[in-house]
Amino acid sequence: MGELHIPEIEMPSHASAILKGRPDLAFPCPALAGGTLDVTNPEARKFTAGLIEEFAPLFSGPEFHIATDEYARQAEQEKCPELVKYAKEHGFGSTADVFVDYINEMNKVVRALRASAR
């Protein structure tokens, strides 16, 4: 058996390729600028879910990686007033929970596609 390659879309951090085409989906605060999707932006969530829905079916392997293993540390997150406000308004215990919520949402998109492919 040959090498296993797992397709991946980097998000919410290291998303500079996405943000090059859609700079409006980046965090507006300087602490999270430079390649991080604004996970508080409904349009960013809709767009990245659409990317997954478009690209994941092109691959027949059992996995599709959304690379959500990296995002800004808590101290940097708390320097972003938009993120702090969003977390409070949506009842999250911390700003990190907003990222976890985004990751869970994108995970559901991947799992739904994989379930329908079976």
Rank of each mutant, 00 (worst) to 15 (best):
I6L: 15
I6V: 11
P7Q: 06
E8I: 10
E10T: 07
E10D: 05
M11H: 09
P12D: 05
S13A: 15
H14S: 09
A15C: 00
I18N: 00
L19R: 02
K20G: 07
A26Q: 10
F27K: 09
P28Y: 01
A31F: 03
L32E: 08
L32F: 07
A33W: 03
A33I: 02
G35M: 01
D38C: 12
V39Y: 09
T40Q: 11
T40S: 13
N41H: 12
P42R: 13
E43F: 02
E43Q: 14
R45K: 10
K46P: 00
K46G: 03
T48W: 00
A49E: 06
E53Y: 08
F55G: 02
L58R: 05
L58T: 12
L58Y: 07
F59Y: 07
G61P: 01
E63C: 10
E63K: 15
F64E: 01
F64M: 05
I66L: 13
I66N: 14
D69E: 15
A72G: 07
A72K: 10
R73H: 10
R73S: 14
Q77P: 01
E78I: 02
K79D: 02
C80H: 00
C80W: 00
V84Q: 06
Y86D: 00
K88S: 08
E89A: 10
E89Q: 13
E89V: 10
G91F: 08
G93H: 05
G93K: 02
G93D: 03
S94F: 04
S94E: 03
V98T: 08
F99C: 07
F99W: 04
V100W: 12
Y102L: 09
I103P: 03
N104C: 08
N104S: 15
E105H: 15
E105Q: 11
N107C: 09
N107Q: 14
V109C: 09
V109G: 06
V109A: 02
A112H: 05
L113H: 06
L113Y: 01
R114G: 03
S116Y: 07
S116V: 14
